[in-house]
Design a protein around this nucleic acid. Structure first.
Length: 494
DNA sequence: TTAGGGTTAG
């Protein structure tokens, strides 16, 4: 079997070294089909194979492994999300496949992953390649690129990218303009967004969406007066605020701690017969609850059905969070049961809230029970589920159990993210054990290997820890790596 | 991926 497989793989090797510039030609001799047992490979086993296989031999193993389809490729790219280098290698290998060609979506994923690793060279190479294949880059591609530049503190660069979109064959329009504003606002750069808004609102014919985005931007930085000013401008321009506008302002009041104003605003919405929807109520339930007014929160929750607005899962989640934080987990669980009783399907957020609530009162065993229930509910624990359990185990001094969960992640389809590594590395310092520091060192190496950039602080902390516990050899290894950083591709530069 | 509501630690 393995011998047969080998002969299959040798054939495409010659064409492997560079990207073929021409579309694949129909072949007179069809390539031998992959062995029957491997034709229907599931995403999990392919992902695990990619993770386990040495990068040097992956290019030989992968192409003939299965019948590649866009869906399979997308699923695998998503699963490899927290292992950027592997994800990009996978993308590149399939990009030079004989018969399979990447979809626009796959390119967008690849671009997103490269951008997240701050590997801008690869990012732009993919953009060029995408265009050569007439798959884009499209508005979504630019939304991704802009968001990543903003997220890494390069808002000016993001604006440049927006302004040069048309040079890549993707003309700017109102949608892409609104996306730019939104990305800036979500990154707390409302002032910058507002300046652009003023500069270009005529050119792109700013609409209600643009105004809502900017108003929300100011709410996000707790500048509700400015948000109200935007609302006023909007009305002056003859644009009628809609329920989203009001919900934005309402949430803004809560965010800024102005519960009194929020209540007044809500009453005014009612008086003026504005539309009040499930989002309005969810905002109210959550807002009053986290402000400590649990009774009021509950009352609003009970009131909404009478007002003809049915709670959503998010509304239940809001109430559950409030009860966990300001009341009692047991009451939160009663609400959880009630929602099941009424036929709602809790999502992973619901479970995470209950799990966190239980962890918080030290009931780790029951928390784990809910994690198992989550799996039974054809819902999957996500990286947040794992992270919060790992965090509480470590805080509890049960570091082994935390590490056990971590191991589980690496073998399953929920790869650890940057937070996971930071949580665990920090935990390795509490017992002041030499062995723990060695684990911290290994975690540090592993996270770098997976495309995460440790902060300088983390680096030095691990280094000092190793030196203080007599692990000079390992410390030197890490030091060598640190000094190599200057020469590594710039995504690794400190 | 054009706007609003639930997870995050302190």
């Amino acid at each position: 079997m393995s011998k047969l497989h080998k002969t299959v793989v040798v054939i495409p090797k010659s064409a492997n070294s560079s990207f073929p510039k021409t579309p694949p030609k129909p072949q007179t001799v069809p390539p031998p089909p992959p062995p029957a047992a491997e034709t229907a490979v599931d995403p999990t086993s392919v992902t695990n194979l990619i993770l386990k296989t040495n990068p040097e031999i992956l290019p030989q193993k992968l192409p003939g492994l299965t019948q590649w389809t866009p869906d399979l490729v997308h699923t695998i790219l998503k699963r490899l999300w927290n292992h950027g280098p592997k994800a990009l290698q996978f993308f590149k290998i399939l990009d030079s496949h004989h018969t399979y060609t990447h979809s626009a979506t796959a390119f967008d994923y690849g671009i997103d992953i490269a951008a997240r690793m701050r590997d801008y060279k690869t990012l732009w190479a993919l953009v060029v390649r995408m265009r050569a294949r007439k798959l884009g880059p499209g508005p979504k591609t630019f939304a991704i690129i802009i968001e990543r530049y903003v997220a890494s503190g390069k808002a000016d660069k993001a604006v440049d990218v927006f302004l040069s979109m048309h040079k890549h064959g993707c003309p700017q329009d109102l949608n892409s303009f609104n996306t730019l504003l939104d990305v800036l606002c979500k990154a707390k750069r409302a002032e910058m967004a507002y300046n652009l808004f003023k500069m270009f609102r005529g050119k792109f014919r700013a609409d209600m969406v643009s105004y809502n985005i900017v108003a929300n931007g100011f709410c996000l930085i707790k500048r509700t007066p400015k948000a109200l000013e935007i609302l006023k401008q909007m009305v002056e321009r003859g644009l009628d605020p809609n329920v989203m506008t009001y919900n934005i302002i309402l949430k803004g009041f809560f965010r800024a701690g102005q519960t009194k104003e929020a209540w007044e605003f809500f009453l005014q919405m009612k008086r003026r017969k504005c539309e009040i929807d499930v989002v309005t109520y969810t905002t109210m339930v959550h807002g009053f609850g986290v402000a400590g007014e649990v009774e009021r929160s509950r009352k609003l929750f009970d009131e909404m059905v009478g007002a003809g607005v049915l709670p959503s899962v998010a509304t239940y989640n809001a109430l559950i969070q409030v009860l966990c934080k300001k009341d009692n987990v047991e009451n939160a669980i009663l609400v959880f049961d009630e929602m099941l009783w009424k036929g709602y399907v809790p999502n992973v957020t619901t479970y995470n809230l209950v799990i966190r609530g239980l962890c918080h009162v030290g009931n780790m065993d029951r928390a784990v029970e809910y994690m198992d229930r989550l799996k039974d509910d054809e819902c999957e624990p996500n990286v947040q589920t794992y992270n919060l359990l790992i965090r509480y185990y470590c805080d509890d001094g049960e570091i082994e159990k935390g590490l056990e969960l971590f191991e589980k992640m690496s073998s399953g389809h929920c790869l650890p993210n940057l937070d996971t590594y930071n949580i665990l590395i920090s935990a390795m310092f509490v017992r002041k054990k030499s062995d723990d520091l060695v684990v911290a060192g290994k975690l540090l190496l592993e996270m770098i290997d997976r495309g995460f950039l440790p902060r300088r602080f983390t680096f030095n902390r691990v280094l000092n820890g190793l030196l203080l516990t007599g692990n000079q050899g390992f410390a030197r290894e890490i030091l060598r790596l640190q000094s190599r950083f200057g020469r590594l591709p710039h995504q690794f530069r400190l």
